[in-house]
Nucleic acid binder design. Structure first.
Length: 420
RNA sequence: GGAGAGAUGCCCGAGAGGCCGAAGGGGCACGAUUGGAAAUCGUGUGUACCGCUAAUACCGGUACCGAGGGUUCGAAUCCCUCUCUCUCCGCCA
């Protein structure tokens, strides 16, 4: 959520921003209109309340006829006040609905563009794997080695769910531990939050209301299945006012993530896009100064995972049109999958400036006696598991259809070197 | 699931229709004292919003005592609904 003052100060800058992001600027005009009406109503209400407060003090000292008259007069003022209060509440609700639809302002270094092709490749690591045989995709590899069972996932949960089996399940567990251990060494505190979150939490990080149809909802208890650990982890500090010395705070969390992927049907084959997947997440709470520098180190921390796994990958700086709603700057990490023949987004690292902090009310006090300010939040995937697994399987296959286990995972798999 | 207790400012805690944005204490900040510190004394110290501003500085104003409604000229205080926390009982990996 943007600061209303930022919008009021320079609406035209916001208009440009919306166009760069390929949003309609109707929301801006709607906001300006509602905001003006809201301010006028607030002002009148304040004036009348002042009148009432003064009259109340007088009435307390009056008696008899004078009192009766004053009370009668105030009755009409009270009626007008409650009318205005209703109007203010109405306008405020409408204005807030509109402001929640205005995305974050991109950092000046973000390229302007309207499609995937405008994203800028800022770094490439390793070479795309070449084979002297026809490589299989992960679906064939998984089924032939009996380490992924798509049919049984469908049987117990439905389309878009899968089952890892044997060495597949073991490698998944190894990956989780490898990533968490690496992030621990990088200075992140591991947390293991609830897998379900309440409404305040999904509002706090911005999934609600915009993405509400993409989340699983337990109606009876009004709980939501975690769509990304960003939600529970960021909201750990909801409504907190931190001391300056508390910052920065770095958290890492492994958590299953759930996506309904409502209305999407393409790409649902295999493990590329599924309803439930494991993910190790990185979340930072930092001082506003230097938050974009923190994004660079967060990115590097995520890249370390891929380097360690010896996977070819590239880093994209997303353009204005391709960035997430709440982000001011985003890098995507794409790992190559030679069997599928595509680049897979395995991580997305973003700096949200104060956009999320304002919604979740995460603040800090620069000095004990000073006014509190919003912190800046960042997060990134310390890699989404299924796609990482796909990339490992497809890159590390040999002619016999076996999979070489990356060296860094072997300690987590009793030294095993091959899946065969 | 059953029974009870509670929710007030950064923290603890009073308050029982107008004198309450809220006593008192703690913490913190500033000042005095000191060679320096502790102790002591004094002053100050919430958030959001509106207006005025170059200003997130003053100043003027409004709202906020878990949330939402109601009664009243006037509600932290009375009434209703809800949420959350704690304790005990039951159930349970």
């Amino acid at each position: 959520m943007l600061d209303v003052n930022v919008i009021r100060e320079d609406p035209e800058a916001i208009r440009t921003m919306l166009r760069n992001r390929t949003y309609s600027d109707d929301v801006l005009d709607k906001f300006l209109e509602l905001d003006q009406a809201w301010r006028a109503a607030v002002e009148e209400g304040n004036r009348l309340r002042k009148q009432r407060n003064e009259a109340s003090l007088r009435i307390a000292k009056l008696n008899g006829k004078d009192k009766a008259e004053a009370v009668a007069e105030m009755k009409s003022v009270a009626a007008r006040i409650s009318e205005l209060e209703a109007r203010v509440a109405e306008l405020e609700a409408q204005r807030d609905d509109v402001i929640l639809l205005i995305p974050n302002i991109p950092h000046p270094t973000v390229p302007v563009g309207d499609c995937y092709e405008k994203n800028r490749v800022v770094m490439e690591h390793g070479k795309v794997t070449k084979f002297d045989f026809q490589p299989k995709d992960h679906i064939a590899l998984g089924e032939d080695l009996d380490i992924i069972d798509f049919q049984r996932g469908v049987k117990v949960a439905g389309s878009g769910f899968f089952v890892l089996k044997g060495d597949g399940a073991r490698m998944e567990r190894a990956l989780i531990n490898y990533m968490l251990d690496m992030h621990h060494r990088q200075g992140y505190t591991e947390v293991f939050p609830p897998v379900v979150v309440n409404r305040a939490a999904v509002i706090g990080t911005g999934q609600y209301p915009k993405m509400k149809d993409d989340m699983y909802w337990c109606e009876r208890d009004d709980l939501w299945l975690n769509p990304t650990a960003e939600v529970p982890v960021t909201n750990l500090l909801q409504d907190d006012i931190l001391a300056k010395e508390d910052l920065p705070i770095y958290y890492t969390a492994y958590l299953p993530s759930f996506r309904r992927e409502a209305g999407r049907h393409a790409e649902m084959k295999g493990m590329i896009r599924v309803h439930e997947f494991n993910k190790v997440e990185l979340v930072k709470f930092v001082l506003p100064d230097g938050s974009f520098q923190e994004l660079e180190t967060l990115l590097n921390d995520a890249q370390d995972v891929l380097r360690g796994l010896e996977l070819p990958f590239r880093t994209l700086l997303l353009c204005t049109g391709d960035m997430g709603f709440a982000s001011a700057k985003t890098y995507d990490l794409e790992s190559h999958a030679p069997g599928t023949g595509s680049w897979l987004e395995v991580s997305s690292c973003s700096c949200f400036t104060d956009f999320q902090a304002r919604r979740a009310r995460v603040k800090y006090r620069p000095e004990p006696h000073l006014k509190s300010e919003f912190v800046h939040t960042l997060n990134g995937s310390g890699l989404a598991l299924p796609r990482t697994m796909v990339s490992i399987m497809e890159n590390n296959q040999d002619r016999q259809g076996r999979i070489r286990i990356p060296e860094v995972l072997r300690p987590y798999m009793q030294g095993q070197e091959l899946i065969e």
